[in-house]
């Protein structure tokens, strides 16, 4: 069973619907006992970083996540919150990925970065069966800087990390729940990841 961590972010419906489509049971929760019993966690994401971090700390979700040893997937702002710092609201974040989140610059491109874009330099267990250059759906104005933890990179104006992996922590800047069959494959891959210890 997957626990979708409830920190008051929007668009949890679509993520739940996507998990249902691939036959995965899930619950949306901020309860410690439920999170500790889950086989994997997803930190979903639509929202603003400083507000989201405040809710996470108020509900002690950071401490609860750190008590677990199961795979954790952050999606969009969920992944950004797992980085060390976000320029959005000048926010110290959870620090599971050793990189910081920067505002995308309108260098000949429109912001927010909205729509389908390709991921390159694809590696890691989230992307098993995913071809180099596959397109996923993005909607964001901030993104993690290029990093050694990157398992794919995307260009919109400049390059950013479109996915990250460090130990049991995984993240995608794109929305797999909105990215057609390729996105469903990424979610299925995440569900198939065996527990890894840090």
């Amino acid at each position: 069973m997957t626990a979708i961590i409830d920190y008051g972010s929007g668009n949890i419906f679509s993520l739940g619907a996507a998990l249902e489509r691939i036959g995965e049971e899930y619950t949306v929760t901020s309860e410690e006992s439920v999170i500790l019993a889950a086989e994997r966690l997803i930190l979903p994401g639509v929202g603003e970083a400083s507000h989201a971090m405040r809710v996470i700390r108020e509900r002690k979700l950071d401490h609860i996540i750190e008590k677990t040893s199961v795979p954790v997937l952050g999606i969009c702002i969920g992944m950004q919150l797992m980085c060390s710092y976000s320029e959005e609201g000048d926010t110290p974040c959870l620090g599971y990925f050793a990189t910081s989140v920067k505002r995308l610059l309108p260098e000949g491109v429109k912001i927010p970065h909205m729509g389908w874009n390709s991921i390159n330099g694809v590696k890691g267990s989230l992307f098993e069966g995913i071809k180099e250059g596959e397109c996923f759906y993005f909607v964001h104005s901030f993104a993690p800087a290029p990093s050694l933890s990157a398992t794919s990179m995307t260009k919109h104006g400049s390059l950013f990390s479109s996915s990250l992996e460090s130990g049991r922590f995984f993240g995608t800047q794109f929305h797999p729940e909105k990215s057609g069959e390729a996105g469903e494959r990424v979610l299925r891959n995440f569900i198939n990841i065996r527990n890894k210890s840090l």
Binding site: A17, A18, E20, R21, Y137, V139, H175, K178, S179, G183
Partner: peptide
């Protein structure tokens, strides 16, 4: 809208 969100995998 809920039926649509459950049934399709694109935005």
């Amino acid at each position: 809208v809920s039926r649509i969100a459950k049934g399709i995998n694109i935005p």
